[in-house]
């Protein structure tokens, strides 16, 4: 089978680039929509026009961000057709459903109420306007549910059957796809991390106002609401992150081993709290995986299996097998996968020849090994190992920042309660850069999820390298640089418009 790896790599680069770009805007939408709903609720409750001015200020920034988030998201969906048509053919029956529901159900909901929220001031009643703002927040996060159901299915494919007649996976149980435990833990973790990021965004701009000595009352109020939301959200993000890691350990043990740099499985396995990987380490060799490391004893066993004494498999166990622990080697899975591919080809040939007896025999043989069919496309066992350094460092950056954020929110809240927040010259610069740190944590999380999933597009079933469209790489190169230029212009436009609105500050409508 001839595979143009340069096409695969360019298609991956294009998706990674456009997805990470899209993710600059999405988490801000997920969280800022709720913050706007809080601000407007306080305005409706108090009738104080200062809260109306504050609400409109944050809503303007929300609107700028929302527009570019939508534009960059549409590009992603088109790529399933242009660059990943084999993927769309093989799993489109399942993967397409949540994407369509997201567009028809959730996005239309948020888009409709978005119009009322933006253009409905003084045209609809106060309460209906407030209801619209809440619906934008609910709709935005409903959109995220469906996208994360689709991504959760890529990480843990459930609720489908393989149709050997068409060589496609078909939806068998919709509820199983929607309530996939990986999708649920992914949604609550991702959505609440958006709450956290939006709270940091509000801290950043409010800190800037306090440093500049402008709009002090508005900045102090914004800081209190954002700090309460951020403190609760960051605690919840840690809780759901633990649950997401548990699901990874159960469903994607290779990804867990990669993000922890664990080569040799252990009982009472430790977590590497911090460390530098040995760049020359390869699966199966005897080198130490780390140049330096700081470990927390037993913690990985507890995180992965909810038991201190449990065994956590390492990369070597998963690649070369571990009889004692009942882990099958990748080489054995590859052999079964190749057999499944051959049996499927025989089945199709027999169908063409109208030889039903031969077809039934081939189908029975195929069904014995069909779960391994994806492995049949791997060239060697080590190909089942994802890149180690990228998910390892991304995971540890995300966790370190995730530990810092609740402390930052607590400090802002503490000094707000004391009434001295505007005088804290050491804290405000931290608030000023916190939005950027939040963005780094956001992108790191997705890098862990998606790079750690390699070499699979659908985990254990469909390798990335056979998912692309049969195109020459130059086609993807052209669109890659085209998107790069357009997206950079969009980002520059957003930053420029936002900075202009921030420098204008809230309008005084009294």
């Amino acid at each position: 089978m001839d595979i143009d790896l340069s096409m695969v790599n360019w298609a991956r680069a294009q998706f990674a680039f456009t997805a990470m770009y899209h993710w600059i805007f999405v988490p801000l939408t997920l969280g800022l929509s709720f913050l706007c709903a809080f601000f407007e609720s306080i305005y409706v409750r108090t009738g104080n026009k200062e809260w109306l001015n504050l609400t409109k200020f944050w809503m303007t920034l929300f609107g700028i961000n929302f527009a570019i988030g939508v534009a960059t998201g549409i590009i992603l969906e088109f790529q399933f057709g242009t660059n990943w048509s084999n993927y769309s053919w093989i799993v489109g029956d399942i993967f397409g459903a949540p994407l369509a529901i997201e567009g028809i159900f959730a996005f239309f909901l948020e888009a409709t109420f978005f119009a009322v929220m933006f253009f409905g001031w003084n045209r609809v009643s106060k309460k209906f306007h407030l209801f619209s703002t809440w619906m934008v927040a609910v709709g935005s996060n409903l959109s995220a549910i469906w996208i994360l159901v689709a991504n959760g299915w890529m990480q843990n494919p459930v609720g489908m059957l393989f149709n050997p007649e068409t060589a496609r996976f078909e939806m068998h149980n919709f509820a199983e796809v929607v309530f996939n435990p990986v999708a649920v833990s992914k949604f609550v973790h991702t959505s609440s991390s958006g709450f956290l990021f939006a709270s940091l965004f509000v801290l950043t701009i409010s800190s800037w106002f306090l440093i500049k000595g402008r709009h002090l009352q508005m900045a102090k109020r914004s800081i209190i609401v954002a700090s309460v939301f951020g403190l609760l959200a960051s605690s919840y993000v840690a809780f759901t992150g633990d649950e997401a890691a548990y699901e990874v350990a159960q469903k994607q043990p290779m990804k867990l081993a990669a993000i922890e740099g664990l080569y040799k499985g252990e009982t009472r396995a430790p977590i590497v709290a911090a460390g530098i990987l040995n760049p020359s380490k390869q699966p199966g060799d005897d080198q130490d995986p780390f140049l330096v490391e700081v470990k927390i004893p037993w913690a990985l066993s507890l995180l992965a299996n909810r038991s201190l004494d449990s065994f956590v498999p390492g990369i070597d166990d998963l690649v070369y097998g571990n009889k004692e622990q009942g882990i099958e080697s990748v080489a054995s899975k590859i052999a079964k996968g190749k057999k499944a591919i051959n049996d499927l080809a025989e089945f199709k040939q027999a169908r063409k020849e109208n030889n039903n007896q031969k077809a039934e025999l081939a189908l029975a043989q195929f069904k014995k090994n069909q779960d391994y069919i994806g492995y049949g496309y791997l060239d060697k066992p080590e190909e089942a190992v994802p890149p180690i350094a990228i998910p390892y460092y991304s995971f540890h950056i995300m966790v370190a920042l995730g530990t810092f954020f609740p402390l930052l929110f607590a400090a802002f809240l503490f000094y707000s309660l004391k009434g001295t927040i505007a005088e804290k010259k050491w804290l405000l610069p931290l608030g000023l850069i916190s939005g950027l740190l939040g963005l780094i944590a956001q992108e790191s999380g997705w890098v862990v999820a998606e790079v750690g999933r390699q070499p699979w597009a659908i985990y254990g079933l469909l390798p990335v390298k056979i998912s692309t469209t049969n195109l020459a790489a130059v086609n993807v190169q052209i669109t890659f640089f085209m998107f790069f230029a357009v997206f950079t212009l969009l980002l520059a436009a957003e930053i420029k418009i936002m900075l202009k609105q921030i420098s204008i500050g809230p309008k005084e409508e009294l």
Binding site: R45, N48, I224, F229, G419
Partner: peptide, 30 residues
Amino acid sequence: MTALMLILYVVVIIASYKGSIFILKKTELL
């Protein structure tokens, strides 16, 4: 666990609003 996570998700949103009101009152910024 799924139900607990979804319940807490809603609790975080409601508690954030209620908690903000409480602290804004306390600091006389409401």
